[in-house]
Computed example of a mutant assay.
Amino acid sequence: MEKAIARIKVAMQKREKIVIFADYDVDGTTACSIMMGTLKRLQNHYKFELDLIIPDRFKEGYGLNDKNIVRLVAMNPNLVITVDCGISSASQIASLKEKGIDVIVTDHHEPKAELPTDALAIVHPKFCNYPFVSLSGAGVAYQLCKGLWEVHGKKAPEWVERDMLDLVALGAICDIMDIKEADNRIYVKEGLKLIEQGRRFGLATMGSRLNWKKVTPYTLGFQIGPRINAAGRIEEADCVVEMLLSNDADIVNSILNVLEERNQERKKIQEYIVKKGLEQIAKSNYKYLSVVIGDEGFHEGVVGIAASKMIDVFYRPTFVLARNEEGMLKGSARSIEGVNLFEVMQMHEKVLR
Rank of each mutant, 00 (worst) to 15 (best):
E2V: 13
A4E: 02
A11H: 00
K14R: 15
E16S: 08
K17I: 04
I18L: 07
I18N: 05
I20N: 09
F21N: 04
D23M: 07
D23C: 11
A31I: 03
A31F: 04
C32F: 11
M35A: 08
M36I: 12
T38N: 08
N44M: 09
Y46S: 05
D51F: 03
L52K: 12
I53A: 07
D56Y: 00
D56K: 01
D56A: 03
D56M: 07
E60H: 04
G61F: 04
V70W: 15
L72W: 06
L72V: 08
V73F: 06
N76Y: 06
N78R: 03
L79I: 14
L79W: 07
T82W: 02
T82H: 00
V83W: 03
D84Y: 03
G86K: 01
S88T: 11
S88F: 13
A90G: 02
Q92C: 05
Q92K: 15
A94Y: 11
S95K: 13
D102W: 01
V103Q: 02
I104F: 07
H108Q: 02
P111K: 06
L115M: 12
T117Q: 04
T117W: 07
A119K: 00
I122N: 01
P125D: 06
K126I: 15
F132R: 06
V133A: 12
S134A: 14
S134F: 14
L135Y: 12
G137R: 03
A138W: 12
A141C: 10
A141S: 08
L144G: 05
E150T: 15
K155H: 08
E161Y: 11
V168N: 01
D175M: 04
D175W: 02
I176H: 02
M177T: 11
M177A: 13
K180I: 15
E181M: 09
N184W: 04
R185P: 03
R185M: 13
V188P: 01
E190L: 08
R200G: 14
F201G: 12
L203F: 12
L210T: 08
Y218E: 14
P226K: 01
G232W: 02
E235S: 05
E235R: 14
D238N: 08
C239Y: 13
C239R: 11
E242W: 02
L244I: 05
L244H: 07
D248C: 06
I251D: 11
S254M: 14
N257G: 12
N257D: 15
L259A: 02
E265W: 15
R266C: 09
Y272P: 05
I273C: 07
I281M: 15
A282M: 08
K287D: 13
I293A: 00
G294E: 00
G297I: 15
E300A: 11
V302P: 00
G304Q: 03
G304I: 06
A306R: 03
S308W: 12
K309A: 10
F319W: 02
A322R: 00
L329H: 01
L329W: 10
G331K: 00
A333I: 06
V339I: 09
V339M: 07
V339H: 10
V344Y: 09
M345F: 11
Q346N: 14
E349R: 13
E349A: 11
K350V: 12
